[in-house]
Structure formats: C-alpha cells, structure tokens
Simulated scan of single mutants.
Amino acid sequence: MAAFIIRRIAQALVVLLIMSVLVFAGVYLIGNPVDVLISPDATQAIRQQVIEQYGLDLPIWQQYLHFLQRLLSGNLGNSFVFNMPVGTLIAQKLPATLELTLIAVFFASAVGIPLGVYAGYKPDSKLSRLIMAASILGFSVPTFWIGLMLIMVFAVQLGILPAGGRGATRELFGVPFSFLTLDGWSHLLLPALNLSLFKMAMMCRLAASGTREVMLTDTIKFARAAGISEGTILRRHVLKLISIPLVTVFGLELGSTLAFALVTETIFSWPGLGKLIVDSITSLDRPVMVAYLMLVSALFVVINLCVDLAYAALDPRLRHGSR
C-alpha cells in the first residue's frame, strides 16, 4: 500500500508541473497587462519603469522560472489591480466558494444516489419513471435559467428567500461560514440548490444504471437464494458493487463544481472566487489568473489522488494488480 501511495503522489507532482507550464504559457502569452495598469497618457519612461518593475521585460522562460520559484516557496505574487498578495486575496474568497461547493455536491449525492438506487431497483414503477424523467430535465435545462427561475419564484413572487448575497456569517477557526447561522442558510439554499441539480441528475442516473446492472448478476441471485433480506442485499451488495463509479463521479464533480461555480456565484451575487476571476480576466490581472488556475489544477489532482486511494480501499485487487 505504501508503494501504491508513493507512486500516485509522484504522478500527481508530475501532472502539477506540466499544468504549471500550460497555465503560465496560456495566461502570459495573451494580452498585455501594461495597457490596463498604465494610463494611455503615460510617458514611455513610466511604461518602461512599470514593465521592469513587474519583470515583463524578461524572456518568457525566465519569467516562468521566477514564477515556479515563487510558487514553490508559497509566494503567489502580488495582484496588479488590488496591489496585495494574491494568496491573501484568494484566501478571503475561497471559504465562500468551498462552502457553496461542498454543500451542493453532498446534497446532490445524498438525494441523487438513493433516488437512483430506487429507480434501478424498481425500474418499472411509476415513481422510478418519474425520477428518470426528472433527471433528464436536470441534464437539459441550463444552470443560469434554473437560477433565474429560483430567484423569480422564491425571492420575487413568494418572498421567502433572499435573491443574493451571503447573509450573516459566524467564524469557525477564524474562517467565516454561512451555514452556522439561520440567515446564512437562507442565503445559501438557492445557490446550493441551483448548483446541485445537474450533479444530482448525474448521480441519480449513474446509480440507477449501476443498480439495474448489479441486480441481474449472479451475486444478487445467490444472495436471494440464501434468504438474505432485500434491505441487506441493497446495503451490503448493491451499494458496494456500484461504489467505485460513484466515488469517481463524486470526486470529479467536486472538482468541476468548484472550478465552474462561476455562473451560480454571478447569478446569486455570491462573494466567492467566481467574481474575483471574472474581474481578473477583465483587467488582465495575471498573478490572480495564474493562481486561480493553479489552485483549480491542484484541487483536481488532489481529488483524483484521493479517488485512487479510495479505489484501493474499496477494492484491494486494484492496488495488488498495479504491482
């Protein structure tokens, strides 16, 4: 098991190194932040001073080495626009995005998996057909449209939930969270629901197809022949057999939800990383853009590493076979 973990960590580090090259090249070869940072009326001497100050006159490979050196030392640089450390800027916005993402993904899993298992266990029932039809809508309807409809119904017409913002927060270990207050929950419900619907539909259909396939295997037939109750069969056999694809989707969707919560955060004015990255792209704030992309890449790599380790824990054949 130790060799398996070391090998996966080494692979993760290689992926992060490759991603750093791609992210740096993709961001630093597009646009010129000097045009945004300096007034068009500035003299050539002032422009040259700013270019040298930010190291924009160096070759691209030398800029990358400086960036990699700062990254390894934990220094993400200073924002061109906000004139403050990028790490501090991201740390201020990250808790809000993490809170929204985790609640949305866990809610999608807690609702989607049981519904999918039921739909796969009794595929011919009316409720199962209704569940599968609703999951198709979850895939088909755009997220931004659902968000606008949620605001129109619950905030405008019914007036029972706020249309945006984060609401009151309470600190936990020095970090503000909304789920610790009732007002925070009222602001959190609509964006979390909007962000979770697509994931819920995916988890539901995956669990339904996996359950339907497992129910036809010899394992289930032998379990029923042995007189094991249906509840025990679902808990000990079906859920265990469909757990690996569910763990895969859970890990990938956790990363993608964190990376692409931009639309939901914009619609509901949620003060997370979404608005920060939009403002950074508009102003060509390269350090913030690179730091955000590297953060997302690192989260994907870490999540995939955790998924691989979960595979090995769920099915020992995987780690033994990798030897």
Rank of each mutant, 00 (worst) to 15 (best):
G159I: 12
N194V: 09
Y121I: 02
D308E: 14
V105M: 03
I30S: 00
D124W: 10
A223W: 01
V50M: 03
A91G: 05
L188F: 02
S178N: 03
I60W: 04
I233G: 05
S196Y: 00
V21I: 15
M294C: 01
A3G: 08
I60C: 05
L273E: 00
P123Q: 12
T219Y: 13
P162R: 02
M215G: 05
R286N: 11
A42W: 00
I113N: 09
S178F: 02
A110R: 01
S20Q: 07
R323M: 07
D183N: 14
G272S: 04
S280P: 11
L318Y: 15
L76G: 12
A207F: 10
M149I: 15
F67V: 02
V307G: 10
F268K: 10
R317S: 01
F300W: 13
S209C: 00
D285W: 13
A225Y: 00
V36G: 08
L273C: 03
G231V: 00
A313R: 11
L252R: 15
D285Q: 13
L115F: 10
L206C: 05
R129P: 02
N75R: 15
R323T: 10
G116S: 07
A223F: 06
V278S: 11
R8H: 09
H66M: 00
A192R: 06
L206D: 02
M132T: 04
I9H: 01
I281D: 02
L305T: 02
V117F: 02
D183E: 15
V249A: 15
P316R: 13
I160M: 08
L195N: 06
T101Y: 02
L258M: 15
R166T: 10
G231N: 01
L158D: 03
V117K: 04
L72W: 06
L190C: 00
S135P: 03
R319W: 03
R70G: 15
L299T: 11
P162W: 03
T97C: 12
L293K: 09
I267S: 12
